[in-house]
């Protein structure tokens, strides 16, 4: 499907901006409307084909949006940062936006004749557990919420969207993407903050294998999803991109701080690493591997689709972090 009118939810995010850049290039006849509840990015400047709007994430706003405009592709890239807001009120807000909001966006999309919707989820939904198989396929149960209440909104959203997708598969195409750790010069997510922190505590008693995808490759997957991916759930990771946590920190030129996690994990969970803004659940992702099997995605993409190896992706992050410090 070649889209002509695209809605991007969460335009203020770095990944969304990258994706919009690629979409403008890829579809010269398409117009894009980007929305966000956060302040809008100044980066794009005036562009006839791109309109941006800051709107509150409420039912009325979305209903108005879908009434006033006709879209044939909806990219839902809006996500709450896992590291922010741990009070019960914050959690309820996250749950409402992620679960009820995502469902409502899909309902409105269906009602207004959208041809395809792409929803961004995350590999965190599988959970970092000691009995994880080495490559987790899309069919594996989502076990993250068993252990981490912080991730409940993410898991519930994924479940709700997946159920919706299969129920309405004959009426509308939809795709759920579960990417591995996204890193790059402009992404400031939890894992990037962790990896670039000069005193990042890492376990001296565990060394989980990790996957990283460069922001450009990820944006390319999102931008290409409308044409290349049929309805379904896809794990997103570059081919062969696996590296141990310690090796990743080394590739970042980061000495880190080795500590025995078998003693320190609980205090760290309780403290939530305030200076690092690293949430408690991440500790388990630094202890046990959570590797996703992205073979289903690779079947649908051209062979040379991914441009960045794991080392190059980390190098990009390292260069950006060094520049920032200078």
């Amino acid at each position: 499907m070649i889209p002509r009118s695209i809605l991007v939810i969460g335009i203020s995010g770095s990944l969304a901006q990258k994706t919009v850049g690629l979409l403008l290039e890829k579809y010269p006849n398409a117009t894009i409307r980007g929305i966000d509840a956060r302040p809008l990015p100044p980066g794009f400047g005036p562009n006839e084909r791109l309109q941006m709007e800051r709107i509150p994430y409420r039912r009325n706003s979305f209903e108005r949006l879908f009434r006033d405009h006709r879209f044939d592709l909806v990219l839902n890239l809006g996500r709450f940062s896992h590291s922010q807001g741990h009070t019960p009120k914050d959690m309820a807000r996250k749950l409402e936006f992620s679960v009820i909001g995502s469902r409502r966006i899909l309902d409105l999309s269906l009602k207004s004749g959208v041809k395809k919707a792409v929803t961004l989820s995350t590999f965190h939904v599988y959970g970092a557990l000691p009995d994880n198989p080495t490559s987790i396929s899309e069919e594996m149960p989502l076990r993250a919420s068993l252990k981490y209440p912080d991730l409940r909104h993410v898991v519930d959203m994924d479940n709700v969207v997946a159920k919706w997708m299969w129920r309405h598969q004959n009426a509308m195409d939809s795709v759920v993407l579960r990417p591995c750790n996204i890193v790059g010069p402009s992404i400031r997510n939890t894992i990037s903050r962790y990896l670039t922190h000069p005193k990042a505590p890492y376990p001296m008693d565990f060394n989980p294998m990790m996957q990283f995808i460069h922001e450009h490759d990820m944006a390319n997957v999102v931008a290409g999803a409308s044409e290349l991916l049929p309805t379904g759930i896809y794990n997103v990771a570059p081919p062969g991109g696996v590296i141990g946590l310690r090796q990743a920190l080394k590739a970042m030129g980061n000495e880190g701080l080795p500590i025995p996690f078998f003693l320190a994990a609980w205090p760290l969970r309780l403290l939530q690493w305030p200076r690092l803004r690293v949430p408690g659940y991440l500790i388990d992702y630094l202890i046990y591997s959570c590797l996703i099997d992205s073979s289903l995605l690779h079947r649908h993409l051209p062979k040379d689709f991914f441009r960045y190896s794991v080392e190059k992706a980390l190098q990009g992050l390292r260069e950006a972090s060094t520049k920032k410090r200078l």
């Binding site: 000691p130 009995d131 994880n132 080495t134 008693d205 565990f206």
Partner: peptide
């Protein structure tokens, strides 16, 4: 074994795999 600090890591690095 995987859950054991140091031992689990050393076993995996030596080639051990979870019995799945």
């Amino acid at each position: 074994m995987i859950k054991l600090p140091f031992v689990g890591e050393a076993s995996l690095r030596l080639g051990g795999v979870l019995g799945d």
